[in-house]
Design a protein around this nucleic acid. Sequence first.
DNA 1: ACAAAATACAAGTGATCGCTCATAATTGTA
DNA 2: TACAATTATGAGCGATCACTTGTATTTTGT
Lengths: 208, 208
Amino acid sequence: MARKVETTPRKSASQERSRATVDALLEATARVLINDGYDQASTNRIAEVAGVSIGSLYQYFPNKESLVAAVIDRHTQEISEVTRKALVKMAASPIETAARAFVSVAIDGHRVNPKLHGVLAEQIPRVGRLENIEANIQQGYAFVRGYLEAHRDEIDVADLDLAAFILVTVVEALTHAAVLRRPDILSGEKAEQFVDDVARMVVSYLRA
Amino acid sequence: MARKVETTPRKSASQERSRATVDALLEATARVLINDGYDQASTNRIAEVAGVSIGSLYQYFPNKESLVAAVIDRHTQEISEVTRKALVKMAASPIETAARAFVSVAIDGHRVNPKLHGVLAEQIPRVGRLENIEANIQQGYAFVRGYLEAHRDEIDVADLDLAAFILVTVVEALTHAAVLRRPDILSGEKAEQFVDDVARMVVSYLRA
DNA sequence: ACAAAATACAAGTGATCGCTCATAATTGTA
DNA sequence: TACAATTATGAGCGATCACTTGTATTTTGT
């Protein structure tokens, strides 16, 4: 039942030249995914866009899935770099401040590479070892769960687990939809009202 | 740029026998989508599962996309049958009652055929003329927008458009995630707490 | 300078896909 | 019963896909 697919690199690129090849392949994969969608992203096409032979592609990636997985890893790492500091700083803040910060961080994360993010979230087959995105959300879930426990006395909800689920799902869905489908909501001064509204909703939920 | 794909039936089935064939094809498509996922759902496989020749499939559906579109139509119609009455009844209710009802309706809708719903929402390519699901959400959006306008005096938010976007996105995301990924949250007496929490969040957002 | 290791190349393989078409079987009509 | 319309069949076509393999080129180490 479980189809095992290797997603680790076939060989590590040690020389400067090969590192450039790997980079070109990752860049091309992201470009093709964004411009043509997952279905059109054939390995032959990716190699062509990268200016690299199909043979070279398979020198460094054992299969198509590993190539996409590498792009996902790179993207989640970029998001992490943008959001990590803010999350750490947030941990000690009271609910009102933390809620606003959390929403802002979620927006920033979705703004790292919105088009790529959209493709990864909506078009990548959920099977296989491509659940790196899922893992990322799970990480945010753990963080929120920890925050709620630490601030137990400021919170009125009965079930912290349920609250964490609701908070993560709500903020992720709202920022995702706003950045990708309603960018007008986040343009100019409107952005502040969006953050205000969502943060207020979250806070008033936690305080019964 | 715009690739036009016909999604209407190639010919309408007039006899009893052919209607059964069409039905078997739709049923098989849903089954294959659920069991094997979109990528494995080849027309050859669907015809085989339906116990119908590949030629017959193309008598009634001009292409694969139209077949999937028909399954989506059928599914959205089933959801509509479940939810329509409740939505109409909800229109005259005050916020507290309406909010609870809205969340309940969303859950019922997602429970019509959860596995199929998950595949349709997560695996179907967003390109082409398969935005029927999108249209369904848009319909819910229009309904909420109308409700908010009708109950303008009970509401404290400044931007009704933003509020409608937030409400629809939040309730859709929460019920979707709960039904498909956290069914434990909706089992037994826990379900009531979930509805309570979400409804309370929604109401406290609308009343500043 | 030169051999070995690393890297790059691209034609080609087998499998699968969506879909067609010539033909056969069934059903409605007279 | 006879004929036309409808429906069903499935071998197979051309295209595309992920991926292999044998060979050529470049870089490294000495």
